[in-house]
Design a protein around this nucleic acid. Sequence first.
DNA 1: ATCATTCCTTAACATAGGTTAATGCACAGC
DNA 2: GCTGTGCATTAACCTATGTTAAGGAATGAT
Lengths: 192, 192
Amino acid sequence: METPSLFSVIEALSPIDPRARKDMEALTAPRTFKKNEYLLCEGDRVDDCFFLEEGVVRVFFNSDGNEYNKTFFVPGMFPTAITALISGNPSLISFQALTDCSVISFSYSAFKNLFGKHRSLETLMLRIMEVEWIKKERHDILMVTEDATSRYREFRKNYPGLEQQIPQYHIASYLGITPIQLSRIRSRLFSE
Amino acid sequence: METPSLFSVIEALSPIDPRARKDMEALTAPRTFKKNEYLLCEGDRVDDCFFLEEGVVRVFFNSDGNEYNKTFFVPGMFPTAITALISGNPSLISFQALTDCSVISFSYSAFKNLFGKHRSLETLMLRIMEVEWIKKERHDILMVTEDATSRYREFRKNYPGLEQQIPQYHIASYLGITPIQLSRIRSRLFSE
DNA sequence: ATCATTCCTTAACATAGGTTAATGCACAGC
DNA sequence: GCTGTGCATTAACCTATGTTAAGGAATGAT
């Protein structure tokens, strides 16, 4: 479980030039969250972007008193409320650490101010949105076209090892089923 | 059923200054699609943005030979493959006219070239993405938290009159159920 | 060691929704 | 006027999943 570095992830997404990197490094600050702490609560306004170095974060929304997990973030991802960030509106979703986490944070407005100076950073931002959008699109398609068993298989493939680190009811919520149903699926899957 | 105008919709989304409007008007061209024609097919690359003046467009994706409707566009909306547009990759989804349509089209790359000159256009673009993102988010939440009957009620509320203009199997696909199930829901709903 | 808490599993039952197939209606082409 | 085609409905049956409830394993506090 090596810790991914922010700038190696950025390079892989969309290369930025050394001066842009310098300016961006000046914005970043390390930060930690304890297990169960919130990176962001529904209703909060945000200006912070996070890059996850270690730990697991879930994103969920609330509806009629129930929580629904939308996705998980593992090291190397950006557990960041893009919609709230670009709109300036309060977030509709919450981000919670499921284990102790260490992140790198930077201000989105400060980051955006660099766009004028460094075109490559704006390109990077679009690229991040695009990747998130496509990921969301893929997940939507999965949710509609596949049954819970396939979705569970897919989850295990996409997040190797994650199953061991978080309670199953979070996985069930992510899959759109009850923990009971997940338990049934698991028992079928592992007995046959 | 008055025809919405591109620039009144833009003004309502995010005001742009008169010179930006002039430059943008120069990019636009009217265009029509016949019923069942495709605005965009899965696999195509795109540079065109569309604004729908009249008619109905569906967006769908293919999975194992089946079509799944993601959403409908009605006049005043932008039936545009944002992901493919910003990524430059072939589109994963298709856009099809369900009735005769008239649209206004403009080139995304030409539009983007105006960003340097007119900040307000870039703001508009982000605003459009944001609105689409939020709409998608709301729909996701509905799909997960509500059963098909509520989703059908919601559909009728969000798209008043649309039900009369398109076949029910398209609506069923949008709701994530079979036409048979939609028929059952309708008969329950309208008999009681 | 005991007890409470948290979480997973299992069972019994109820419901939503899928599948297949038959029926009926409306409209287009001849 | 027929007839085919596309679409909506209905019925019979089946499966996936939800609900409620109970029990058991692991963990942590006292």
